[in-house]
Amino acid sequence: MLHLTIEFSGGAELLFGNVKKHQVELNNDTKWTIRELLVWIKDNLLKHKPEMFLQDETIRPGILILVNDSDWDLLGNLSYELNDNDNVTFISTLHGG
C-alpha cells in the first residue's frame, strides 16, 4: 500500500469538510502520479463542486501543490511519481472574501 499524508490549507480545507490533514492509503498495483491523485481526491475526498478544486484536468490555478514541502514546479508537476509516506500539501492562494 502507498501511504500518503494529504494536507489542505489557506482555505482549501473548506472544500474538504474543514479537515486539514488526511491520512490515506492507496493500492499500489499501478504507479501513482499527482495526475492520478487529483482524480482520486476529486472522487473520494472532495465535498464541493469540482470546479472549486480542478480546472481542465489539473489543479485550479491559484492552488499550490507542495510535495514534502517542495514546490511541485521542481518535481515535474502532474507527472511526479508519488512515493510511500509522501506529504502532499494543497495551499489555496485564492481570495477569501
Binding site: M52, I91, L94
Partner: peptide
C-alpha cells in the same frame, strides 16, 4: 503561501466559509 508554510504559521489562516459561495 510558501513563507507561511516554512514558518509554520499557515494554521493561523482562518478561511471564511462564505468564500465557498464564490464560484
Amino acid at each position: 503561501a510558501f513563507y507561511n508554510r516554512y514558518n509554520n504559521i499557515d494554521s493561523n489562516i482562518m478561511a471564511k466559509s462564505s468564500s465557498l459561495k464564490n464560484l
